[in-house]
Design a protein around this nucleic acid. Structure first.
Length: 299
DNA sequence: CCGTCCACCTGAGAGC
DNA sequence: TGCTCTCAGGTGGACG
């Protein structure tokens, strides 16, 4: 269940291990992992062959590898979303095939491979053009000097670790909403990178109830919440950053969430670390919300 | 604009 | 043993 910190660790690993390499061939083991690539698997493999990877870029939970464009009019990228269970692994070619190996990328220098492994196939890979957008994207500066993004990512807001994330504008937009705060946190067009687990963690830290109406939040409270999100992300990144030095890129897909200890998620019935009250789990938005009924009151 | 429901998926675990 | 059911949740689209 990768959220922003997990995806960022993958991005950093790809920047280290595959940027600068030239793709030799691509083996599509499971075509459903390419369902978002409309022209089909053959087009996917044919387009990638011979391209060099020039950068690894991320926005929220999306990441993409910039590709040399050759004679193409527009710059290209291989866009990835890990969904619920996706992993991008860098492995030596002789490593045995993973049980849920979906796509294998082989490079010119054959010392390692990039493998897309995804149990549930909610994740996907696709080749996409990069386009100029109004707000621009992280890392995507093209030759024209204009910021570029995959169109599939154009509706995704900047994430709170992006230097260009505008805290004040975010607070205004939250207050203009008429919805619950957790719903807003999970809305990737408002703030990106947050999933169900870190949403619960950040709300606990900021002592806010998940259903607290957004229009009743003060700018100060929203600032506290945004800081809480950054804290939770930062700690997860610190925990996951240790894998930078290893010869693999990993989203610890099974146990997930690195080894950082979670304060509320998955702790229903256990004492709140602030006040000792048993943590409550409730269904909300068809998923679980964990919170302290004393620290996090609705009003 | 808002909220709900659904489809897309696999595998673990519970209950019978 | 083996069947059915529930649950896990990111994304995007349909619909009221």
């Amino acid at each position: 269940m990768p959220e922003l910190p997990e995806v960022e660790v993958v991005r950093a690993g790809l920047a280290r291990w595959v940027v600068g390499r030239r793709i030799d061939s691509v083996d599509v083991v499971e075509p459903r992992s390419l369902r978002r690539h409309r022209p089909g698997p053959e087009h996917f493999t044919a387009t990638l062959a011979g391209r060099e990877i020039t950068d690894a870029v991320r926005r929220g939970k999306y990441l993409w590898l910039l590709l040399t464009s050759g004679n193409d009019p527009a710059p290209l990228a291989m866009l990835a979303h890990l969904g619920m269970s996706g992993q991008l692994l860098v492995k030596p070619p002789e490593a045995p095939a993973e049980r849920h190996l979906r796509v294998r990328v082989t490079f010119d220098d054959r010392d390692l491979q990039l493998r897309f492994v995804d149990q549930r196939i909610f994740g996907s890979l696709q080749v996409t053009e990069l386009v100029t957008t109004a707000d621009g994207g992280p890392g995507g500066l093209g030759r024209t000097g204009l910021p570029l993004l995959p169109p599939e990512v154009a509706h995704i807001a900047r994430d709170p670790l992006d230097p260009a994330f505008d805290d004040s504008d975010f607070a205004d937009r939250v207050r203009a909403r008429h919805t619950g705060i957790k719903r807003a946190l999970l809305d990737q067009s408002l703030i990106s990178g947050i999933g169900n687990i870190y949403a619960d963690e950040a709300l606990w830290r900021a002592a806010l109830h998940y259903a607290r109406p957004t229009e009743t939040l003060t700018r100060t409270a929203i600032a506290r919440l945004t800081d809480a999100v950054r804290q939770v992300f930062g700690e997860a990144l610190d925990a996951g950053g240790t894998s930078f030095d290893a010869l693999y890129v990993n989203v610890n897909g099974e146990s997930g969430y690195f080894d950082r200890s979670l304060d509320v998620y998955g702790r229903a019935g256990e004492p709140c670390k602030r006040c000792g009250t048993p943590i409550v789990r409730e269904k909300f938005m068809n998923r679980s919300s964990h919170f302290c009924p004393v620290c996090q009151r609705k009003r």
